[in-house]
């Protein structure tokens, strides 16, 4: 049976059903529904909910819970996500699993609370210090929010690495019918890394794994190369014959898909690549494609994803950007831009 839920609520409920039993976080718009939902839901399943004094403390509590073998997570938005970076770096360096959601709102500094995609660089290229990456999933629907959240917990443990759900105010505030995953159990005593006191055995410590490794440089490189090779996720729509391939994630991908369908109805050969994993970036999606142009569409004024598109396609065709920011573009804006680019491309040939 489907439930009508907000993206934020689907994230929270899916986490519970994935066996997450620890949440610590701090209120911030447009993410606060996660706290409100879990403050009620966690006690029902015997889990821990803490409204922490700050995001710095919240992610550190998650670090402790993850070290104890629990499935643990936090969530925030822009300014608060900046504060989470400290702990994320520590958790990555200790190779512990956790899930972090950033519900993107627009802008630097305090910014504003309307939808945006301006935390791409921070999420994908690490807001924190050091040599690490976090696996980043970008849902484009409430259903996908639930599905990716479940996947995130499994992937975090498989790779022993934080996983980021990079949502935005639209996907998180939006309500839609969602088929929730079945309730799963997680045994916190099972993971090899779970601290519970040394008992009669040998003690365990969680700190940067580099301290106790002879060949750390090669090790960490190989770890992320494996992720880049095996963990790419994306959706391709009608790219095979496309003259122009749109590239967009999250809310922008929904607008682009609508624009693509509308353009197709008018006989324009338009395709769409929707990256689902932003790290690793789905470079394989671009294999064998030879359109006249790529158009990267995102709600950031500086074009944060556009250069990843350029790298992924090897610049086999010109890469254009359609940028938002304080302004939310519509489907017809994207169609107009497609027309401009194709017109220019035809003119040039």
């Amino acid at each position: 049976m489907k439930e009508l839920m907000k993206g934020n609520e689907a994230f929270a409920e899916a986490a519970i059903r994935a066996g997450c039993r620890f949440f610590a976080g701090y209120p911030i718009t447009p993410q606060s529904e996660v706290l409100e939902y879990l403050s009620r839901r966690m006690p029902e399943v015997g889990g821990v909910f803490i409204q922490s004094e700050s995001e710095l403390a919240g992610i550190s509590m998650v670090y402790g819970a993850a070290a104890a073998g629990f499935r643990a997570m936090t969530s925030s938005s822009g300014p608060g996500y900046s504060l989470l970076q400290e702990g994320i770096s520590y958790i990555a360096s200790a190779e512990l699993p956790c899930v972090v959601m950033d519900v993107m709102r627009y802008g630097s500094g305090l910014g504003d609370i309307f939808t945006g995609q301006s935390d791409y660089w921070q999420a994908v290229y690490n807001g924190g210090h050091g040599d690490y990456r976090t696996i980043v999933y970008a849902p484009s629907s409430v259903q996908e929010m639930a599905d990716l959240t479940v996947m995130a917990f499994g992937k975090a443990e498989e790779r022993r690495n934080p996983v980021t759900i990079l949502s935005d105010a639209s996907i998180s505030q939006m309500m839609a019918p969602v088929e929730l995953p079945a309730m799963a159990c997680h045994d916190p005593d099972a993971p090899a890394w779970a601290l519970k006191g040394k008992g009669n055995g040998h003690f365990k410590r969680h700190t940067s794994v580099m301290y106790y490794m002879n060949e750390y440089d090669g090790y960490v490189r190989a770890k992320y190369e494996k992720i880049e090779k095996e963990d790419q996720r994306w959706e391709s729509l009608e790219t095979e014959d496309a003259e122009i391939v749109l590239v967009a994630y999250g809310i922008s991908s929904r607008i682009c898909e609508e624009a693509m369908r509308s353009a197709r109805a008018q006989g324009r050969r338009v395709g769409l690549i929707r990256p689902i994993s932003l790290y690793p970036y789905p470079v394989n999606a671009f294999d064998g494609l030879a359109p006249r142009a790529f158009l990267s569409v995102e709600m950031s004024a500086l074009g944060q994803m556009a250069r990843d598109v350029a790298l992924a396609c090897g610049m086999r065709a010109p890469v254009y950007s359609m940028l938002g920011g304080t302004r939310l573009y519509s489907c017809s804006d994207v169609e107009a831009r497609i027309g401009e680019i194709l017109g220019a491309a035809h003119g040039a040939f």
Partner: peptide, 12 residues
């Protein structure tokens, strides 16, 4: 049917 609902919030 397929449906989406999205509220205005905050300063909006």
């Amino acid at each position: 049917k397929n449906v989406t609902w999205i509220p205005s919030y905050g300063s909006e």
